[in-house]
Amino acid sequence: MAYAYLFKYIIIGDTGVGKSCLLLQFTDKRFQPVHDLTIGVEFGARMITIDGKQIKLQIWDTAGQESFRSITRSYYRGAAGALLVYDITRRDTFNHLTTWLEDARQHSNSNMVIMLIGNKSDLESRREVKKEEGEAFAREHGLIFMETSAKTASNVEEAFINTAKEIYEKIQEGVFDINNEANGIKIGPQHAATNSTLSGSQGGQQAGGGCC
């Protein structure tokens, strides 16, 4: 399907925080507690609309265990957005955020938008990390923040879409060099065609598949 832009995302965070479940909820709109453990990397993709433009999100879901860290680093390359996930019912997953963030900053491009996500918000009775703590961490490190539940789908759409909005704004501001694929952004055939004629103001044309 034709798209104006393609954004590459990566989902990172400790093992068992619900990375794969978030991805599945976003791409398939379902919660599946039964799934194989992620070893290496999994993928998902979905089309969203921002500002009347079709944007394809290509999401890379990674293994969370410490020993996979050296491999996860190679996935950061060319990501425009990252969802950094912790589990609000497990304090240690929150404590590890700094190392994750260091890794992400070190191995990705400097403009990568990072969304901090406190997952499992449906398990209020087992909460170990206050919402304010998440907010404070995000503020301190310049991240966007949101609490989600992959189980009830609460805020899942918003998390992925808000990240995309942020990236989109950065493109409009000219922060991202969209011609460099290493930034995790690709211009679709649709947009490339309209861009040349209308300097990219009006989206929505069905001019897909023009060039090779």
């Binding site: 194989d36 070893i39 290496g40 990397v41 491999i71 190679s74 996935y75």
Partner: peptide
């Protein structure tokens, strides 16, 4: 596409998945 992107699971799990 680095080998590590696709062969990690193949090799580490001896193709069981």
């Amino acid at each position: 596409i680095d080998p590590i992107l696709y062969m990690t699971e193949w090799f580490m799990c001896v193709f069981s998945r």
